[in-house]
Design a protein around this nucleic acid. Structure first.
Length: 487
RNA sequence: GCGGAAGUAGCUCAAUUGGUAGAGCGAUAGCCUUCCAAGCUAUAGGUCGCGAGUUCGAGACUCGUCUUCCGCUCCA
C-alpha cells in the first residue's frame, strides 16, 4: 500500500496511458520539454486552476482577477529587469564541464587579485570586462579570460568553450502597418501584466489598500535545461496574486500569505510532511524577503510556490519608464489623525506553478496497491486518489448489465447528474473491470444500477478510496455527490 | 550543454552468429450476465524513433539525428 517516492517513471507512464499528459507533437518525435494535457489532464488542470481562482477571488472580497495578454510592450521587460538581468553570456569549461556566467567568472578572478593586493589590476580587469559586456563583444571577453589565464576552479584548466548568450525570453516579431517589425517577447512571468494594470483595476474597481489582483496564464522561459517531466517546461502556466499594501506593513502581509498559502496546499490534499518552507538567502533584485513552499516530488524537495515581498520595485520601475504615476492615495488616518496620503504601494506576491501543482497532485494521488482476497488469491490495482473536488470525473454511472432496462435507468440518472458535475457512463465489461478503470483515472464515486433498482429505486455506490460500497436511494445520488465534492 | 542508459503494436516485452516481425495484456464488435481487472468468438493495430552507410540482404552492425530517463549543470 505504500506510496513509493521513487516511482516517477510509473507516474509518467500512467499519465500518458490514461489521457492525462502526452508529449507535445509526439507523432513527430516530440518537442523537448513541451507537453500536452490530454482529456483527463486538461480537466484536472482546469479544476485545480478553478479551485485556486475561487479561493483567491471568491473567498477574498479584496482580491479581483484579471487576464492580461501574453504579449506586452517591450519596455515592460526593461522595467522588470528581465532584459538586463537574464541574458547573461555563459562559458563552459571543457574539462570539468562546468558552466559559468562570464561576468561572475571574471569578477571572482578580480576579487582574488584584489585580495592579494593587486587592487589596481583587479579594477582594470573589471573595467575591461564591462566595456566588452556593453558591446556584447564575446571574442574580447574570451580573450580577456585567456590572457589572464583565468582557470576553472574545479578542473584548474583554462580550456574554455566559446562564449554563448542565453536569453531566457522567447523573442518574436510584431508586424506593424508600416511594414516595420518590432521584437517583442513572450512573457516570462505573468506578474507584469498585473503591475501595468494596477491603476486600471484600482480605479475601476474602487479598490482600497490592502487589495490583491490575481491572474492565471501561460508564461514562457527558454531554459537552458528543461527537464523532469512537467516540472520545468519552457511553456508553463502560473497562478499569481499580487497583493498591494501600505509601505511598512509588507512583512506582516508576507507572513500572512506565507502561512495562508501553505494551508491552501494542505487543503488540496497534499500531505503536510511533504511540504516545507525554504527561505531565500540570496534575494532577487526586486525582493526584500522571499520564501519558497517546497514539495517533496519523486525527485526530491523542489519549489512549488514562491512568496515574495517585492517592495515597490515593479511599480516604481514602471512609473519611471512609462512616466505615468502609479500611486495610491490612502485616505485612512494615521496615528496623528492625518491621511496616509500618496504613495507607491508595496507588493507581496504569491506565485505558484499550475503544472507543478498538477504534478504534486498526481504524484500524491498515485498508488499501486496489492492485497490478498478472501479466497487467498492476490489482487491489485493502480488508483489515483485525487481529491473529489478536483477529480476530472466525479461519478461513473454503471448499469450492471446492458439489458433489462438498466441502461435506460442509468442514462436517466446521468442526464440528471450532468447538470451538476462531470459524469462518466460505461456499460461494457464486467463491473470489476469498470471499477478498476475508474480507479486508474481517479473517479472517486461509482454508482451501479442493478435489478434491485427496478424494484426499490436504490443503487450501489462504491467508493474509490476504500473500495467499500453501500446502497442509497437513486433520488439521493445527485445530492450526495454534490456534498462530497463541495468541501 | 556534457557524460551514461534506452527507443520494436496503446502497454509490458520477444525475435539464435545480419535472412524483410511475434506473444501476453489492452482496444473494438458480438455472445454471456456474474458487484471489484483474468468466460467465449471475431477483428483491427507496427515502413522495428527518424535519416544515411556497410551488405546480395539490416529490427540487429556503423555514423548522424530526434526524444526520454539518470548524473552533473542551469533555474527571478
Amino acid at each position: 500500500m505504500a506510496n513509493e517516492l521513487n516511482n516517477f517513471s510509473e507516474i509518467i507512464a500512467h499519465c500518458k496511458e490514461y489521457g492525462y499528459i502526452f508529449p507535445s507533437s509526439e507523432i513527430y518525435d516530440g518537442l523537448s520539454a513541451v507537453y500536452d494535457y490530454g482529456q483527463n489532464g486538461a480537466q484536472l488542470k482546469k479544476n485545480i486552476r478553478d479551485y485556486w481562482w475561487r479561493s483567491m477571488t471568491q473567498l477574498h472580497e479584496n482580491i479581483v482577477g484579471i487576464d492580461a495578454a501574453i504579449f506586452m510592450h517591450p519596455l515592460t521587460w526593461k522595467a522588470s529587469g528581465h532584459v538586463d538581468n537574464f541574458s547573461d553570456p555563459m562559458i563552459d569549461n571543457k574539462d570539468s564541464q562546468k558552466r559559468y556566467r562570464v561576468d561572475h567568472l571574471i569578477e571572482t578572478f578580480a576579487d582574488e587579485q584584489a585580495a592579494t593586493g593587486k587592487s589596481e589590476f583587479a579594477k582594470e580587469i573589471i573595467t575591461k570586462m564591462e566595456k566588452f559586456l556593453s558591446k556584447d563583444d564575446f571574442v574580447g571577453l574570451k580573450s580577456l579570460i585567456e590572457e589572464n589565464n583565468i582557470k576553472c576552479s574545479i578542473s584548474g584548466t583554462c580550456n574554455w568553450t566559446d562564449i554563448r548568450q542565453f536569453n531566457l525570453m522567447f523573442e518574436t516579431k510584431l508586424g506593424s502597418i508600416s511594414g516595420e517589425t518590432d521584437t517583442i517577447y513572450l512573457r516570462p512571468e505573468t506578474a507584469q501584466g498585473i503591475f501595468v494594470n494596477f491603476l486600471n483595476v484600482q480605479k475601476t474597481g474602487r479598490m482600497k489598500i490592502p487589495f490583491g489582483i490575481a491572474q492565471t496564464g501561460k508564461a514562457f522561459r527558454n531554459e537552458i535545461v528543461a527537464r523532469q517531466f512537467i516540472f520545468r517546461m519552457r511553456e508553463f502556466e502560473q497562478m499569481e496574486m499580487q497583493f498591494f499594501v501600505r509601505p511598512g506593513t509588507e512583512m506582516e502581509w508576507y507572513n500572512y500569505w506565507k502561512a495562508e498559502r501553505l494551508k491552501w496546499h494542505e487543503s488540496l490534499g497534499l500531505p503536510a510532511e511533504r511540504l516545507r518552507y525554504h527561505d531565500h538567502v540570496k534575494l532577487a533584485h526586486y525582493a526584500n524577503a522571499a520564501v519558497d513552499i517546497e514539495f517533496e516530488f519523486p525527485f526530491g524537495f523542489k519549489e512549488l510556490e514562491g512568496i515574495h515581498s517585492r517592495t515597490d520595485f515593479d511599480l516604481k520601475q514602471h512609473q519611471e519608464l512609462s512616466k505615468k504615476k502609479l500611486q495610491y492615495f490612502d485616505n485612512e488616518l494615521n496615528e496623528d489623525g492625518k491621511p496616509y496620503g500618496n504613495y507607491i504601494p508595496y507588493v507581496v506576491e504569491t506565485s505558484v506553478g499550475l503544472d507543478r501543482l498538477f504534478l504534486t497532485v498526481i504524484s500524491t494521488a498515485y498508488a499501486e496497491e496489492k492485497w490478498t482476497k478472501e479466497d487467498g488469491s492476490e489482487d491489485s490495482r493502480v488508483v489515483l486518489r485525487i481529491p473529489p473536488k478536483i477529480a476530472p470525473y466525479k461519478l461513473a454511472i454503471l448499469p450492471l448489465v446492458k439489458k433489462d432496462g438498466l441502461p435506460e435507468i442509468a442514462k436517466g440518472l446521468m442526464n440528471e447528474c450532468k447538470q451538476s458535475f462531470h459524469t462518466f457512463y460505461e456499460e461494457k465489461d464486467s463491473i470489476g473491470k469498470r471499477y478498476r478503470r475508474m480507479d486508474a483515472i481517479g473517479t472517486p464515486f461509482c454508482v451501479t444500477i442493478d435489478h434491485q433498482t427496478k424494484e426499490d429505486n436504490t443503487v450501489t455506490i462504491r467508493y474509490r478510496d476504500t473500495m467499500t460500497q453501500e446502497r442509497i436511494a437513486l433520488n439521493d445520488v445527485r445530492k450526495l455527490i454534490n456534498e462530497k465534492i463541495s468541501n
